[in-house]
């Protein structure tokens, strides 16, 4: 990394860190039950509320947000296309299909077992997407996201059909629309596995950057392209499946966050990956806080808020092309 890039990277990272810390504190003290800051540690009831509900909720938003942003980033790297993300390429829908099937066939399965099945189906669904995406002509960059949307739509339709047949439509929204209001201590910890995936992504950051240069360039530089592709797939699938099972699908995070960071800082993942992770956490946590405040004391699910906020950001990204591109 050049000096200019490194300076910019650490400055942006620092700024993102401050914003994230501020939102983290804010999230702990926003909710139906008012916990004044000065009483938080003195009052046993207030402390319990923080530890059982607010802190887990905040951590869940943070983990899901950073994970989804990184999953989007990796997906964009592997397809060499900046307009794909897990929720528009069949990954999230495949995970939903998995969790639905396990609910039907093995109703007593716990969250962990559900996550494993969802990860497996997400892996399968994403592999099919990637194999197809690599066959599409590179001269038509919009075919990849278009195919992803259609493909995700088909799987999503299958999910709806099965749920409708089994009279589980009401239940389905638990996974299709992200919501942190049900997160309590003991019910979100699986998301920490996603944090391990972030560490894995960070460790292969250079390789991912090279993979974005294409298969030939990667092989020429001595990278085991097929194996790295599989590893990337696993990271994307695990993260998406875990967030789908634990909090439900949150759209747009994986799409807008990596694109914004890429415009600001470029695509050298060694420098940008931490910023992408933090920005994803900021966006999701921010939207969750917004959802708690808009019609206080009632809540709007984060999936809905993100659908609006993310959509607006995405449109803005599309219309405001970088000056030199």
């Amino acid at each position: 990394m050049s000096n200019a890039a490194r300076q910019q990277s650490s400055r942006t990272g620092l700024l993102a860190g401050f914003v994230l810390a501020a939102l983290f504190m804010l999230s702990l003290f926003v909710g139906v039950i008012d916990v004044p800051f000065h009483r938080a540690l003195a009052d046993a009831g207030a402390l319990e509320l923080l530890l059982i509900s607010r802190l887990p909720r905040t951590l869940a938003a943070l983990l899901a947000g950073s994970g989804l942003a990184i999953a989007g980033l990796i997906m964009q790297t592997l397809t060499r296309n900046s307009y794909v993300e897990p929720s528009t390429a069949g990954t999230a829908q495949s995970a939903e299909l998995g969790v639905l099937l396990v609910t039907l066939l093995w109703p007593s399965a716990n969250l962990f077992a559900k996550s494993i099945v969802a990860t497996a189906t997400a892996l399968l669904g994403t592999s099919v997407f990637l194999m197809t995406a690599h066959r599409l002509p590179p001269t038509q960059p919009f075919l990849v996201p278009l195919f992803g949307i259609v493909y995700g739509g088909v799987i999503g339709a299958a999910v709806t059909f099965v749920a409708w047949q089994a009279d589980l439509l009401q239940y389905l929204s638990v996974w299709t629309n992200g919501d942190f209001s049900g997160v309590l201590r003991g019910r979100y910890e699986l998301l920490w596995i996603g944090a391990a995936m972030l560490v894995a992504a960070w460790m292969i950051a250079d390789r991912l950057t090279i993979m974005a240069l294409g298969r030939d360039a990667s092989i020429g530089l001595g990278i085991d392209y097929a194996r790295m592709l599989q590893l990337g797939l696993v990271i994307v699938s695990v993260i998406s499946a875990l967030s789908t099972v634990v909090v439900g699908m949150i759209p747009f995070v994986g799409l807008v966050v990596p694109n914004i960071v890429s415009r600001l800082m470029g695509d050298n993942l060694r420098g940008t990956l931490p910023v992408v992770a933090m920005s994803g956490a900021i966006l999701v946590l921010g939207c969750d806080i917004l959802g708690r405040l808009i019609r206080y004391p009632y809540e709007i699910p984060v999936g809905t808020v993100m659908g609006c906020v993310g959509g607006i950001i995405f449109l803005w990204l599309l219309f405001r092309r970088p000056a030199h591109a």
């Binding site: 050049s2 890039a5 950057t209 030939d216």
Partner: peptide
């Protein structure tokens, strides 16, 4: 036919 679609600096 090498095409660089990533936003990388020349030095990187």
């Amino acid at each position: 036919d090498s095409i660089v679609t990533s936003r990388l600096r020349v030095r990187e």
